[in-house]
């Protein structure tokens, strides 16, 4: 079974509305993926857990709207975005936004091919022409002025007008998925004009049982009691970060999963968590607080054989 079918099976198991899933199948049948962009279709390593969020996201995309995933760190925004493009079987273009982003970066720019000046299309134009899913990652890192070029693309007009070049009509299968994190260092408020062109899905923190499942699925041989303790460690850190006693740096789901992988490979729990979680904060006092939280959950000296059923 390929990964996309696995994803369908997973969603069915999670209880996602079969009606929505049927519509996704219809969408796929209506817009089969061409071979040219086959390599751009995502092959997600992990699946997003959360039935409600799935249903909302599917409904938005099926209705032809653009989706903005907004939420704090470690809520799985990018995992969901990747999962969605895989489920719909569309090629995806990931565009990481930054402060110096400008229109030419998104739409394309002139270049010289040795003979003449030609237009080199940017990721947004490519996605628009080829029915791709454009993932606009950390969309609020860019200046609002730079994003104005997307207004006509994102609203009912669905066109990209490139002065001096051509006007592209956006392919009907194209969708734009933005992700953003409020209050992150360097972020800003999205302006109203842009925000109104998205349906905003506020991403909740993953639930404990889902996180435990995620860990167990990723590491199929982990002992259940440890999957639970690792999951709870994440919530302990989350509460501490929420209260402002530590920064969000140590609140890193990726880091936690990496740590478990390191234990699997052969490191002790203490060493693995130190590298992947504790040391993500650079303040000595903060590190001590994070270590305390870890010490109240997991012994430092566990090895692979104790954590996993090898």
């Amino acid at each position: 079974m390929d990964r996309q079918e696995e994803l369908f099976a997973f969603l069915k198991e999670e209880g996602v509305s079969s009606d929505l899933l049927a519509q996704v199948r219809q969408f796929r049948a209506a817009y089969p993926s061409g071979e040219e962009w086959e390599y751009r279709i995502a092959n997600p390593a992990s699946f997003y857990y959360g039935k409600d969020v799935w249903e909302k996201a599917l409904a938005v995309l099926l209705a032809g709207e653009n989706l903005l995933l907004s939420g704090p760190k470690a809520t799985g925004k990018n995992v969901l975005a990747e999962n969605l493009s895989a489920l719909f079987g569309r090629p995806s273009w990931d565009i990481s936004f930054h402060i110096n982003m400008d229109a030419s970066f998104l739409i394309g720019t002139d270049t010289f091919d040795g003979q003449k000046v030609i237009f080199r299309p940017g990721p947004v134009s490519l996605a628009a022409e080829n029915g791709g899913f454009a993932v606009l990652d950390e969309i609020n890192m860019a200046k609002n002025e730079a994003l104005a070029v997307l207004h006509a693309t994102l609203d009912f007009r669905r066109v990209i007008d490139m002065p001096g070049y051509k006007k592209i009509a956006v392919h009907p299968a194209t969708r734009f998925i933005g992700t953003m994190n409020y209050g992150y260092a360097g972020t800003r408020d999205l302006n109203e004009a842009l925000c109104s062109r998205f349906a905003v899905l506020s991403m909740p923190l993953i639930r404990e049982e889902d996180l435990t499942k995620l860990i167990s699925r990723r590491f199929s041989d982990i002992r259940p009691e440890f999957a639970l303790q690792f999951a709870r460690l994440f919530y302990d850190l989350q509460k501490k970060a929420e209260h402002g006693d530590i920064s969000e740096r140590a609140l890193d789901l990726r880091g936690l999963l990496d740590a478990i992988a390191l234990v699997h490979t052969g490191l002790q729990t203490g060493q693995a968590l130190e590298m992947c979680v504790t040391n993500k904060t650079f303040d000595a006092y903060e590190r001590r607080l994070v270590s305390d939280v870890i010490a109240a959950r997991l012994p430092q000296d566990l090895r692979s054989a104790e954590v996993f059923q090898l």
Binding site: I99, N100, S104, T109, D110, T111, F112, R120, K143, G183, A185, G186, T187, R188, G244, S247, D283, E286
Partner: peptide, 29 residues
């Protein structure tokens, strides 16, 4: 410490927003 970090990030964002980058020669643009 968190306030300092966040303020510094905000200043950084502000300044990079209003700093005017000078154009430079390139293969594209």
């Amino acid at each position: 410490e968190a306030v300092i970090r966040s303020l510094a990030a905000q200043f950084q964002t502000l300044l990079s927003s209003y700093a005017r980058p000078l154009p430079e020669k390139a293969r594209t643009g």
